[in-house]
């Protein structure tokens, strides 16, 4: 395989540019233009007035996790540990137990996600063979006063409903 050589054009070699001062003044004109535009009318700032104005969340957004249920309300998760295995920040902690509802042999007896360690990468969702874990709660602001309360348990995760319609999620998540 031959090595591809791409010559990058060097900028900033002319005398005027080397003088620097001219370029400085050019740059400063640009920023000053922004300054006065914003000073005279600050309604045109490129900002969202969060938290009063909330961002719109799409179905693809990776928000806080939740665990899903079957139609009949039973837990979909079969405690296969795939999410835990794939989690790059090692923040999912599962304990498994026997299951007798005929859906599977195995179910989680403990399912903790330490949201302080989570990096919201979504690998857990990708890894799950059961579509049991999703990040479609639309919750993007996860805050708390204590470390302990940032560890979500099985109940917390099952409690939160999804924020999107099923078709929308399927379409978005692809």
């Amino acid at each position: 395989m031959s090595i591809k050589v791409r010559t990058v054009e060097r900028k900033g070699r002319t005398f005027l540019e080397q003088l620097y001062l001219v370029e400085v003044i050019k740059g400063m004109t640009v920023t000053l233009g922004h300054f006065f535009r914003n000073l005279l009318d600050n309604s045109r700032l490129y900002v969202r007035h969060y938290p009063e104005v909330k961002p719109e969340i799409t179905a693809r957004w990776r928000g806080r996790h939740r665990l899903t249920r079957h139609e009949d309300g039973s837990v979909k998760c079969v405690a296969c540990f795939m999410c835990q295995t794939n989690c790059p920040s090692n923040c999912i902690m599962i304990e498994a137990g026997e299951r007798f509802d005929g859906k599977s042999e195995k179910m989680p007896t403990r399912f903790d996600i330490d949201l302080l360690e989570c990096i919201y990468c979504g690998y857990c969702v990708e890894a799950c063979p059961m579509d049991a874990i999703r990040m479609d709660t639309g919750i993007y602001s996860v805050t708390s006063y204590s470390r302990e309360s940032m560890v979500l348990g099985l109940e917390d995760l099952l409690e939160t409903p999804g924020a999107f319609a099923e078709e929308e999620y399927k379409k978005g998540g692809g």
Binding site: H34, F35, N42
Partner: peptide, 10 residues
């Protein structure tokens, strides 16, 4: 505030 306005922030 100057920094903000230079950078189109509030």
């Amino acid at each position: 505030r100057g920094a903000a306005f230079f950078q189109d922030r509030a």
